[in-house]
C-alpha cells in the first residue's frame, strides 16, 4: 500500500498574493529530498487569484504545482484549506508533505494529519531521507531546545512535517525553469463554512515579539545610559533584529518589561544573540543560553557572559558597536542585495 505513495510535496503559503519565505525555503529543502528519492517535487498552492504565482513556485525548484484557485479560499481557514488539501493528498498520494511551521502551516498540517491518520513532526529543523525504506528523518529540538529528537513515521503515508522558518535555504530562483501546473476544482461553498475571517489587521506598531525573533540584539547596563543604549536600537534596525535587555535596563526605564530577557522576562532561543554590555548574571543567562550563536561584547574579560558566548569580543561597546553598524551598512551597499562580506 505504501508503495502507492510517491513524490515530495510542499504546501505553498501565500498571503495577499505573496509567497511566504518559508515556503520557498521548503522548496529548496524538498528539492534535495526529491532528488535523493528520484521523484518529482510538487507545490500545493491554494487561494484566490493565485494561479499566476505558480511560475514562481516552479522557478524555486518545483516540478509541478497543484493549484486550487477559488473565492472560498481567499483567506486562510482551517476548514476550507484542510478539505482541499485532504482531497489532493488522497487523490495524488505524496510520500512526503512539508509545511512551514507558521501559525497557518501548523494549524493546517495538524488537521490534515488527523484526517489522514498519519504522522506529523512539528517544528523540524533538520530533514533527511533514508533511502532503503524511503523514510523521512525529521529532527527537531525538544524539551525547550535542550535536546534534538529525530522523528520517524514508518508505517503511514504521507510522512508529514512542519519546518521552522529561516532554517532551510531557498534555491536561487530560475525563471526559465519549466514545470506543470495542475488546476484542481473545488466544491466547497461559503455558506457551509463555520468560520468567517471578518478582517485582517496588519500590525503597524511592529510589536516586539522576542519569542519568534531570529536575531536579537540585547543590551545591558554596560551601555552606560539611555543615550548609550540607542546604539543597541541602531544596530538592531540595521540588521532587522529585535531588541532585548537585562532586568537592570528595564528597571532603569531604558526598555519596557516585554523586552526583558531572563528569569523574570522572556526565555528565548534565537539563531543569533548579541549580548552587548551584559555581564551575564545567571538571571539573564537562563533566558538566552540556548540561543544558537551568541556574540558577547563586554569590557570586562572576566564577565561570565563569555563562558556561554560562541564568540567574545573584549572591548568597549561604544567603540565596537558603531564599527559593526558601519560594516553592516557598507556590506549591504556593496552587495546590491544583502551581502555582508
Amino acid at each position: 500500500m505504501m508503495e502507492e505513495y510517491r513524490g515530495v510535496w510542499v504546501f505553498i503559503e501565500q498571503n495577499d498574493g505573496k509567497i511566504e519565505g518559508v515556503s520557498l525555503e521548503l522548496l529548496g529543502a524538498g528539492r534535495k529530498l526529491a532528488d535523493k528519492l528520484e521523484v518529482p517535487l510538487s507545490g500545493v498552492l491554494l487561494g484566490y487569484k493565485v494561479k499566476p504565482l505558480s511560475q514562481e513556485v516552479i522557478s524555486y525548484g518545483a516540478d509541478q504545482v497543484y493549484v486550487i484557485d477559488h473565492e472560498v479560499m481567499k483567506d486562510y481557514r482551517t476548514e476550507s484549506y484542510m478539505q482541499a488539501v485532504i482531497n489532493l493528498a488522497e487523490k495524488y498520494k505524496p510520500e512526503i508533505f512539508l509545511y512551514g511551521a507558521t501559525a497557518n502551516g501548523k494549524d493546517l498540517a495538524s488537521a490534515v494529519a488527523t484526517d489522514l491518520s498519519t504522522g506529523l513532526t512539528a517544528d523540524t529543523t533538520m530533514l533527511d531521507v533514508e533511502l532503503e525504506k524511503r523514510l523521512l528523518e525529521a529532527s527537531r529540538p525538544a524539551f525547550g531546545g535542550n535536546i534534538m529528537a529525530t522523528i520517524l513515521c514508518k508505517k503511514h503515508r504521507p510522512q508529514m512535517a512542519t519546518v521552522r522558518p529561516k532554517v532551510m535555504k531557498a534555491l536561487e530562483p530560475d525563471p526559465r525553469r519549466q514545470g506543470e501546473v495542475i488546476e484542481e476544482p473545488i466544491t466547497l461553498k461559503e455558506e457551509d463554512m463555520r468560520t468567517k475571517v471578518l478582517k485582517i489587521v496588519k500590525d503597524v506598531t511592529k510589536k516586539v515579539n522576542l519569542a519568534d525573533a531570529h536575531v536579537v540584539v540585547a543590551g545591558g547596563k554596560g551601555m552606560g545610559d539611555l543615550q548609550g543604549f540607542q546604539l543597541i536600537h541602531e544596530l538592531a534596525d540595521t540588521i532587522g533584529a529585535t531588541v532585548g535587555g537585562t532586568r537592570d535596563v528595564v528597571e532603569a526605564g531604558w526598555l519596557p518589561h516585554e523586552q526583558q530577557i531572563g528569569q523574570t522576562g522572556e526565555t528565548i532561543t534565537p539563531k543569533i544573540y548579541f549580548a552587548i554590555g551584559i555581564s551575564g548574571a545567571i538571571q539573564h543567562i537562563v533566558g538566552m543560553k540556548n540561543s544558537e550563536f551568541i556574540i558577547a561584547i563586554n569590557k570586562d574579560p572576566e564577565a561570565p557572559i563569555f563562558d556561554v558566548a560562541t564568540y567574545g569580543i573584549v572591548g568597549d561597546a561604544m567603540e565596537i558597536v558603531p564599527k559593526l553598524i558601519k560594516q553592516f551598512k557598507e556590506a549591504r551597499e556593496r552587495g546590491g542585495e544583502i551581502s555582508y562580506v
Binding site: 522523528i151 520517524l152 503511514h156 563562558d307 556561554v308
Partner: peptide, 16 residues
C-alpha cells in the same frame, strides 16, 4: 504513527 528514532544533543557551535 510517529516514533522517536534517536535523541542527540543539538549541534551547537563551541563556546568560549
Amino acid at each position: 504513527p510517529t516514533i522517536v528514532g534517536k535523541m542527540f544533543t543539538p549541534p551547537k557551535p563551541e563556546g568560549g
